[in-house]
Design a protein around this nucleic acid. Structure first.
Length: 821
RNA sequence: GCCGGGGUGGCGGAAUUGGUAGACGCACUGGACUUAAAAUCCAGUGGGAGGUUUCUCCCGUGCCGGUUCGAGUCCGGCCCUCGGUACCA
């Protein structure tokens, strides 16, 4: 009989809902396990295969844990603010709020067909005032602690559309995706969070969390802590100074010029009149370059001198000051000392512009007279360096820094690549920033009791020229909370990464209104036990969330140091090699597969496709294989449906009391349990499914087993099936006469260790590393027995004939390699 | 460019510490069942050469080189590809 999946899946979904099977009792803390997936961005393309690939296997893991007796909390929600809804509005005129709510309703329906054990009472969305109020509240706490501040920062500006563009909206050639005009950089005053204050702690905390090594490595590199020296260069004939950060103070005598980032304000002050035209022209010319282009080591570097000279503190030499694309205002001090002899970029630049190249670190085995043909960046002996000449360059670093410190011309310095978090967005669909600008008092934070500052519905988000909120006069014009005078609100909204930095805390009670989240529950349930989401979030979302969590701890709202204890990345499912996205129009919708095969088959196929952390290119080629398996599993139970009426199975059976067929069955069942348990634990779903397929293949002879062994096997099969195919698992469980949901109790079975022990083992016999025989011998056979059996093999004789044995390698129960010559 | 992944049959992939390369599945081929087809079940299936019921040998995990009795696995150097690169989320 064919498995009526459509009827069955609906039946069990209703059963779960009616019996509140997935409602988590958050007061039960014994074996509490918070399992979380990255919440959904509710775009119009609804759920695609990538979402299923994230959620369904994670749910299978959660269900496995549930079967093992954990009190699992698995919520789902919507990351509802963001740019795409706004772009959609600009294109279609449909208001972001309307499209977002509509999308959420559609997506919720889709989610329910997956059959995940989401606790729907915990559902949340970020675009409602009840949620984003707390973004504003958090902003005020940051502000109070001095961690929110304003400074100028560049945005992508399309001069034709008169609007700020996201990086994504800038095409590869640096033009606007709407009108193909070349995009410029424009400086705006914007809000930042001082994440850099937490740089060291964010680095140290990595040691305490169980995340993929690669993710921790990426965060480490992103934070980019480096130890070096800040050197002060005086400017010739000027009272200004230029500070540079260098990790190579030992090369200070090799400085032949200085490079400043073109956008530094100091550049304007230092540029001499003679050079100013050239300098301004140059600054204009690089306005459209991206940072990636500017720092590329294959692109030819550009730059111009500004006419001023810096004085090298160690020898008083005058070095010309240049501005160049490869100096970035965002790293270090924005200025670099150039040592062409010992830095590859400087070497290239100096060669191009005929600037002097001086050798001050002598490579071992070379002579001072040898001309440098490329930058020497390794450790060597310091030369041409006055009193430091003769020192090794690695120890010279500290000495030269000490000398600078004594003269007040430098100091040791730790520098980070990490930059402060720019949270201002010149967009509508986000959280309004709770700041007012008063004509008298200036910048005034809105008092907490006036929160939320609600996002007004009526705006002209097509408005050219700036933030859409500026178009709503009623919203913008307000009175100062301090003096009551005329004032205006900040027209920007917050980066949506704010929303996703604390949602996992809100899930615990999304309806709490007097605080950001239930602090008691947060202490009990965080850090999150298992967090699953894409690796593309490795450095941004996952770093921001860690930062916010630490800040919340510092203001006493949580007691843990990290938000996510364990982390797994699902791989990306591509379509014809490309990441699925609505803009590429290559999104694969799973709905038709659900209709044809059902949720269980589809989610099991996703798990079977390959290693979870790798992902891969989408193809539905093998889905019929999983469907066949599901059909076979169902008929296995269906044909044994009368089994449980008269008997029950023991927990264990003694092997020697079983028939040969029963023994094999019993062994295979227990081996499968042991295998699948380990595989599921480590998110290796593909091999777990394969093991279950192997098991069903070897249950062919189950009819030859006693009823008890049949029941024993089927109960265990149902338990292994249930996490992978939850609806079918329930169906099979109920066929065995069980009345409760399989997930109601800890229904995972432990493997019988006795059944895992093998009698025989295959020993490989090699001659010169090539397999020549395979011996099936009892486990732990004597070395002599193995060797004499091996030498009895025809092929071994053949390949060793007329040769001398020079070496033998014997590994017990594994291999016997004979090396001959 | 920089940071981090990945590359194994016709296809998706498997392979505890270096120790049988190709589990499981798809596709394909042959067979059973059927009037027939579908479905199902059984068998075969990395490539090449020879022997042709049972067999034997060689090659083979992106490329080049190294370490080792033995390398998909470790080391060095490349190539290709994917993710991120601070305003997609």
């Amino acid at each position: 009989m064919k498995y009526p999946f459509a009827k069955s899946e609906k039946k069990w979904q209703n059963f779960w809902e009616e019996n509140k099977i997935h409602k988590t009792d958050l007061t039960d803390l014994e074996k509490a396990l918070y399992t979380l997936v990255m919440f959904i961005y509710p775009s119009g393309s609804k759920l695609h295969i990538g979402h299923w690939y994230n959620y369904a296997p994670t749910d299978s893991w959660a269900r496995f844990k549930k079967l093992k007796g954990f009190n699992v909390f698995e919520p789902m929600g919507y990351d509802a603010f963001g740019l795409p809804a706004e772009n959609y509005a600009i294109k279609t005129g449909i208001h972001p709020q309307d499209s977002t709510f509509k999308n959420i309703d559609d997506i919720r329906d889709q989610l329910k067909t997956m059959g995940c054990m989401y606790d729907w009472d915990a559902e949340l969305m970020t675009c409602v005032p009840e949620y984003y109020k707390w973004n504003q509240w958090l902003f005020l706490q940051m502000y109070k602690k001095g961690l929110a501040y304003r400074k100028n920062a560049p945005v992508n500006w399309c001069p034709s559309c008169q609007t700020v563009l996201a990086n994504e909206q800038v095409q590869g050639d640096g033009t606007c995706e709407r009108c193909s005009t070349t995009v410029e950089h424009k400086s705006l005053t914007q809000w930042f969070y001082k994440i850099t204050n937490y740089a060291d702690e964010l680095l140290d905390g990595l040691k305490t969390i169980e995340w993929p090594e690669k993710t921790k490595l990426m965060q480490e590199n992103w934070i980019g802590k480096s130890f070096g020296t800040e050197v002060t260069f005086k400017v010739d004939g000027h009272d200004k100074e230029i500070k540079v950060f260098t990790t190579r103070p030992d090369t200070l005598f090799g400085v032949t010029y200085l490079v400043m980032a073109p956008e530094l304000e100091l550049v304007q002050e230092l540029t001499t009149e003679e050079y100013s035209e050239e300098v301004n022209k140059y600054i204009d010319s690089i306005k459209s370059l991206s940072e990636i282009e500017r720092t590329s080591t294959v692109k030819e570097k550009t730059g111009v001198p500004i006419g001023a000279f810096a004085i090298n503190p160690v020898n008083g030499e005058k070095a010309p000051i240049w501005i160049a694309d490869y100096a970035l205002a965002t790293y270090g001090t924005g200025s670099v000392m150039a040592v062409p002899g010992h830095d590859e970029r400087d070497f290239e630049f100096a060669t191009k512009f005929n600037l002097p190249i001086r050798n001050v670190i002598l490579q071992d085995g070379t002579s001072e007279e040898d001309k440098l043909t490329e930058a020497f960046t390794e450790v060597g002996t310091m030369i041409n360096s006055d009193q430091f000449t003769g020192e090794r360059s690695d120890t010279g670093k500290a000495n030269i820094t000490k000398w600078l410190e004594e003269k007040g011309l430098g100091e040791t310095k730790i520098n980070y690549r990490l930059r402060d978090w720019l949270i201002s967005r010149q967009r509508y669909w986000g959280t309004p920033i709770p700041i007012i600008y008063c004509d008298n008092c200036g910048e005034v934070p809105i008092p907490e009791e006036q929160l939320p500052i609600e996002l007004p519905y009526d705006v002209d988000f097509k408005l050219d020229g700036g933030s859409p909120l500026a178009s709503n006069k009623e919203f913008i014009h307000t009175t100062c909370p301090k003096c009551g005078g005329s004032a205006h609100r900040d027209a920007d909204t917050m980066d949506t990464f704010m929303d996703s930095s604390w949602y996992y805390l809100r899930y615990l009670d999304p309806n709490v209104s007097e605080e950001m989240f239930d602090s008691k529950l947060a202490d009990d349930w965080t850090p999150v036990g298992m967090y699953v989401g894409g690796a593309e979030h490795a450095t941004m979302h996952l770093l921001y969330a860690r930062f916010i969590h630490k800040f919340l701890r510092d203001i006493g709202l949580v007691n843990s140091d990290e938000p996510f204890q364990r982390l797994i990345h699902q791989g990306t499912i591509t379509n014809q090699g490309a990441k699925m996205s609505k803009s590429k129009d290559n999104v694969v919708n799973p709905d038709s597969f659900i209709q044809e095969y059902g949720s269980d088959v589809f989610r099991m196929y996703l798990m079977f496709m390959g290693p979870y952390e790798l992902g891969g290119d989408w193809s539905d080629k093998g889905i019929v294989g999983v469907d066949r398996f599901v059909q076979r599993a169902y008929s296995l139970f269906d044909s044994n449906k009368d089994l449980a009426k008269n008997i029950s199975a023991e927990d264990k059976y003694e092997l020697n009391k079983l028939s040969e067929v029963e023994k094999n069955t019993y062994r295979k069942v227990n081996q499968s349990i042991a295998k699948i348990e380990v595989e599921l634990e480590h998110f290796r779903f593909n091999t777990a499914v394969a093991a279950l397929m192997e098991l069903i293949n070897s249950l062919k002879d189950i009819d030859k087993c006693s009823e008890e062994i049949r029941l024993y096997s089927l109960e265990r099969f149902a338990a292994m099936l249930a996490p992978l195919a939850p609806h079918l698992g329930e169906e099979c469980w109920s066929i065995l006469g069980k009345e409760e949901s399989i997930f109601q109790q800890p229904n995972w079975y432990e493997a019988d260790e006795v059944a895992l022990v093998q009698d025989n083992v295959t020993i490989i016999v090699q001659v010169n590393g090539k397999v020549r025989a395979k011996l099936d011998l009892p486990v732990d056979s004597e070395e002599d027995t193995v060797k004499s059996t091996a030498w009895g093999e025809e092929k071994v004789k053949h390949h060793t004939a007329d040769k001398t044995v020079v070496k033998e390698i014997y590994v017990k129960n594994k291999i016997y390699n004979i090396v001959v010559r």
